[in-house]
Design a protein around this nucleic acid. Structure first.
Lengths: 210, 210
DNA sequence: TTCTACATACGTTCATGTATGTATGTAAAT
DNA sequence: ATTTACATACATACATGAACGTATGTAGAA
């Protein structure tokens, strides 16, 4: 075999990423060799080393391909104006959960990230990605909660930071456990309901203090 | 070096487990060789292979040593009678969070389990441990919520299973994020407060439905 | 003396990275 | 329109090293 046209090369690259997703999900990141991925993609290691520097680079590209799409959605939702800023958070988290349920590629990536990879060494970049993403979500949520309290939708005494942390860990916990065993509970129905429960708790003035 | 007395041998075994905890935390489970652990413990691989079959067996023993202690606490708390069964859940989750904050060994094990190991192959036993532990917690919580609703502490319309799942994922989410970056928020103050918020939300009749 | 609790030594496997081969696409020169 | 020259997109081959499991050695306890 020899040189392909540019679009054929891009197909090869995507085939490698597709294969990586599946093999990583099956055997975990550290236990899968590049040879396995190559075989699953129908190429040799040569192709992988052509497109990617090493396994970490391949992993990064894989996550970029899937999680990169989330940015637009965020911008889109932020563009809409909400009288009650909490509605933005509701939409955001619901959209995220829906994505996890309906997009198998998104599900795979989350399962790999949470349960099939170690946040260590060169793979720690995924940790940073998570942290960065979490911090952005936290910042948005905190601001929304602050505004909501200011506008009287939530108690004035509300600790916006704490409320934001609670929402984030709740969503994370939902996805974490569902990717661990999706028969444990129905995410599509329980997820939103549980989030609503938490948000309702924020409205109870007596409970938000320690 | 040569043969030690039985208690010396047990010291060696514990030294190996101690070393494993630290090295696993630093480099992740799959990337640490038994040679590294041996070096950190001040022994050779021979000692490790004497006490344990392989890395997975060592890992199991390590988790057993730390998580095994939780059983008694659970029994102790369950023995106490509570007028409001939700108090049991409160105590249980608060105790767990407190443990995470104050017991560095517990923290280490959780960080390793969540972020420094892949739930795959022979290491999947830790996944089963998590699932089993989660299911027990779920069962206890569900029963407690059911009782609480029955006794009028919570709305009759409460979905006990859903409430239990929410509590579990909330606690998991808290620990998960805090082990990921403990500067993100103060677990000792935020944790209980966030749980209280959720529990308060359960008491709001309008919010428990989808 | 025998068994224990290791240390040491050995052989094998396996993944990695690189070096090299090679056929084709592409652009420029003729 | 060919031909030439070079870059591209891989496949193949090779060298290295690391980790593993086991086999064997050994000094002290029982």
């Amino acid at each position: 075999m020899a040189r392909k046209t540019k679009e054929e090369a891009l197909e090869t690259r995507n085939a490698i990423l597709d294969a990586a997703e599946i093999v990583f999900q099956e055997h975990g990141v550290s236990r899968t060799s590049l040879a396995e991925i190559a075989a699953a993609a129908g190429v040799t290691r040569g192709a992988i080393y052509w497109h990617f520097a090493d396994k970490a680079d391949l992993f990064d590209a894989m996550t970029q391909r899937v999680f990169g799409l989330m940015e637009e959605k965020l911008a889109e939702l932020q563009a809409d104006s909400h009288e009650n800023p909490v509605d933005l958070l509701r939409k955001l988290s619901f959209h995220f959960l829906e994505r996890v349920v309906n997009d198998p590629r998104y599900f795979r990536l989350l399962e790999i990230s949470w349960h099939k990879c170690e946040y260590v060494g060169e793979m720690a970049t995924i940790r940073d990605t998570h942290l960065e993403c979490g911090n952005r979500y936290l910042a948005i949520s905190e601001e929304a909660f602050r505004l909501a309290a200011e506008r009287g939708f939530l108690p004035e005494t509300l600790d916006a930071r704490q409320a934001a942390v609670g929402l984030m860990v709740l969503v994370d916990g939902l996805v974490l456990n569902w990717t661990l065993d999706h028969t444990l509970f129905p995410l599509d129905s329980f997820g939103p309901a549980i989030i609503e429960t938490y948000l309702a708790g924020l409205a109870v003035p007596a409970a938000k203090g320690a």
